[in-house]
Amino acid sequence: AEETGVRVELAEEDDGKKSSIALRLWVEDPKKLKGNYKDSGAIEFTFDLDTEVPETVAQEMVDSGFFLEIDVKIVGKSIRDRVSLIKWRRQRNASGHNGK
């Protein structure tokens, strides 16, 4: 995924089955964002792969004061990249199981 400056990673092992998964997001390269997030911590949250939209979580993070509105797109994209990767891996693992 192209470097957005915001890092999103799994905060727990992905068993490939449960729909809601814990993720951890933090600012790895503050220069790439408009706001000042120099020593902000990592934010852990759960995300439902089946029903939720990354951009909604990004907006909730802005509402909660973690990010400025102006950075909501970058945060949303970073979450979307990680979620797509998780879904892609799950499909690939699933296709691998039925005797391919």
């Binding site: 951890r24 911590g41 990592a42 949250f45 909730e60």
Partner: peptide, 27 residues
Amino acid sequence: SSAAQVVHSAGRRFIVSPVPESRLREQ
């Protein structure tokens, strides 16, 4: 340090913890 928590009005819980140490050294 105890992790700070923020619960959004929509109900999602955000838990703030220090950035994973291993990542900081990579910069």
